[in-house]
């Protein structure tokens, strides 16, 4: 069971308090009606499946209720960092991973 740092509560807590919410930084266009079929297909269905760091969304469902973003290494399962929704993508090269 993973430990996840909630950037809103500023606590590192057991995974059971959280739910996964899909890939992060998938932006819903401000005006969806202007999207082409291909763009909308990309928004709805096309996701990355990297071996290594993956941008993800999680929700602290049983805590503060906030959705937030995370970078998780899909090889080790480790969270490299978590950050508030709306914050820019962190630079992957700066992430060492938290050992706790």
């Amino acid at each position: 069971m993973l430990l996840i740092h909630c950037p809103y509560c500023d606590e590192t807590l057991p995974e059971v308090e959280f739910t996964y919410a899909g890939q992060a930084h998938v932006v819903r266009a401000a005006d969806p009606s202007s999207q082409t079929d291909a763009e909308w297909e990309n928004f709805l269905f096309i996701r990355s499946n990297p071996k290594g760091p993956h941008y993800e969304r999680w929700r602290h469902l049983h805590g503060c209720g906030r959705f937030f973003n995370a970078v998780r290494d899909t090889v080790s399962d480790r969270f490299l960092t978590t950050y508030k929704a709306g914050a820019p993508r962190p630079d992957l090269s700066s992430l060492q991973g938290d050992r706790t």
């Binding site: 059971v16 308090e17 469902l61 049983h62 805590g63 503060c64 209720g65």
Partner: peptide, 8 residues
């Protein structure tokens, strides 16, 4: 707020 046996 937390979970007790998966109950909020």
């Amino acid at each position: 707020r937390t979970a007790f046996d998966n109950v909020t």
